[in-house]
Design a protein around this nucleic acid. Sequence first.
DNA 1: CGAATAGTTGACTAACGTCAATACTAGTGG
DNA 2: CCACTAGTATTGACGTTAGTCAACTATTCG
Lengths: 239, 239
Amino acid sequence: MEGKPSPLVLKLAHGAALTPEDRALLEGVSRETHLIGPRQDLIREGARPEYVQLVLEGFACRYKVLPDGGRQIVALLLPGDLCDLHVTILGEMDHAIGTLTLCRVARLSRGMVADLVSVSPNITRALWWATLVDEAVLREWLAGMGRRPADRQLAHLFCELLLRLQAVELASADSYDFPLSQIDLADILGLTPVHVNRMLQHLRAEGLVTLHNKRLTIPDVPRLRSFAEFDPTYLHMRP
Amino acid sequence: MEGKPSPLVLKLAHGAALTPEDRALLEGVSRETHLIGPRQDLIREGARPEYVQLVLEGFACRYKVLPDGGRQIVALLLPGDLCDLHVTILGEMDHAIGTLTLCRVARLSRGMVADLVSVSPNITRALWWATLVDEAVLREWLAGMGRRPADRQLAHLFCELLLRLQAVELASADSYDFPLSQIDLADILGLTPVHVNRMLQHLRAEGLVTLHNKRLTIPDVPRLRSFAEFDPTYLHMRP
DNA sequence: CGAATAGTTGACTAACGTCAATACTAGTGG
DNA sequence: CCACTAGTATTGACGTTAGTCAACTATTCG
């Protein structure tokens, strides 16, 4: 009589110990869901959102658009990721959030979030953890963009996604569905699509990854990790 | 009978309305201070710090060191900035914090922070605000590094620092003490010192900034802002 | 004064961007 | 089933930005 746990539960379980009651509470929030097409904004820059949005399926992102029209993706939101727990404190959004693929999302009212937090200290702690991990990922991306060559940066991203998707049971030991275009990748890595293409070819030629039909496979995970200098500490996952 | 307000109070006042009682409480935390020489670690990567550190004077930074020895600075900590309110939740530090110049810091025990938060909702809100602004700055840096050419990125940093230092009364309308070396700048911007030098020359040649004796002056702030495409929204400061 | 550190400059190289042409793919309507 | 289209992937030639190496100067500090 039990289905698959929600990605929110799966994810938060990596940040704090959750009781069966905590899990039931967290399952409850995603009873009503919405389907959003690809490349739609979930929250626009300058908005003052009423809801906290939770990604249940698909890939979304935080992004900024520069005056010259260039887009920089500053975070990937995968199933189990929450959009903004705290925008109320900051006032208006300084960036936008949009879908990259078709997404299923749940919208939680502030009241629902407040209830979760007031009822369970584990959940409070887990939500804090999620926020802090988001920040840690941002730092890792910044370091990568500043100091890593493009091919390693790309490899590093693939390593990160393997772990993050495994955490919500959307990746096997060495592969996962990867629905993003090379244009999206370029906007994540701060490169041009042409250069992403070449770096991807390079990784393929080295036998470090394969990418067919939107499925990414890593034949030798330790080898890709060492190539990318990937150290998973920053994701702060429990065993 | 009153001296200059502590930078912590000055800074947090931009994030939330503080009563005189709140201010007094916040002043209280920096009674005992420590002087730390330049280029000293305040918290090492992998540590589990006991204290929250508060910068009172000088420039410090969060940084990561990559396997090849390269350093990437992922945040600047100015007077009024707190080091890590919440590392306890994450476990070990995934980056280090170190001084860039001689610094005066205060060390707050977890208990002191907990007291502050439990006594005043304004302070709680202000600390939240500070955390969220740190994250917003990180996103802005990431976007700049990914999508802005080096000269604009440098100009953008100077604009950001003008506002952040004005917030703690360490900058005039158009200038401030800027003690960092070009090597430090390179580690912030993800460039080499040589290239930073050239970009700085470029800004000087254009009359956008002057930098003498560690004092940075911006002769025409609107002009530098427009050159840098600087939009201060992401700092979320109150009027 | 001398040693170390930081700033400056030039010549050269490597990484990445730009432009443009060509394929490939999925969806659409006939 | 076949165009037809739009978006994406791929490739090559070439331009630009930023990195490397190395010398030299200026500054700081003991």
